[in-house]
Simulated scan of single mutants.
Amino acid sequence: MKGASDDHPVTYQDPDTKEKMTHGTADGRKACLHHCLTYTATQAIVAGLGARALGIRVHPGVAAAALALSFGTHYIADRRVPGKGLLEKLATKTGKGDFYHLADYGINGAFHLDSAWHHGWETLAALIATAKATTR
Rank of each mutant, 00 (worst) to 15 (best):
R52M: 08
K20M: 14
A77S: 12
E122C: 08
H59N: 10
L124P: 01
A26T: 12
D6E: 11
T22N: 11
A103S: 13
L113P: 03
A116Q: 08
Y12R: 11
G95W: 06
A129M: 08
G24Q: 09
Y75Q: 03
K132H: 13
L54T: 06
Y105H: 15
L113C: 02
L127R: 11
L127F: 11
D16I: 01
H23L: 11
P15L: 01
A103W: 04
A63W: 00
H34M: 15
A66V: 05
A110F: 01
Q43M: 12
T92C: 07
A53I: 07
K18D: 10
L67P: 00
P60I: 07
D114V: 03
D6Y: 10
V58Y: 01
S5N: 08
T92D: 13
I45T: 13
L87D: 03
G83P: 00
A68N: 06
A110C: 13
N108E: 13
I128E: 02
A110M: 07
E19P: 00
K2V: 13
A47P: 00
L37F: 10
A77P: 04
A44H: 05
F99R: 00
H35D: 02
I76L: 15
T25C: 02
T134R: 15
D6L: 12
W121T: 04
H119A: 12
H74M: 09
N108I: 11
L102P: 00
H59Q: 11
V62N: 03
P9C: 08
R57W: 10
F99A: 04
E122T: 09
T94G: 05
D6C: 08
K18I: 14
D7F: 15
D7R: 14
G120Y: 10
G97F: 03
L127K: 09
R29L: 14
G50L: 10
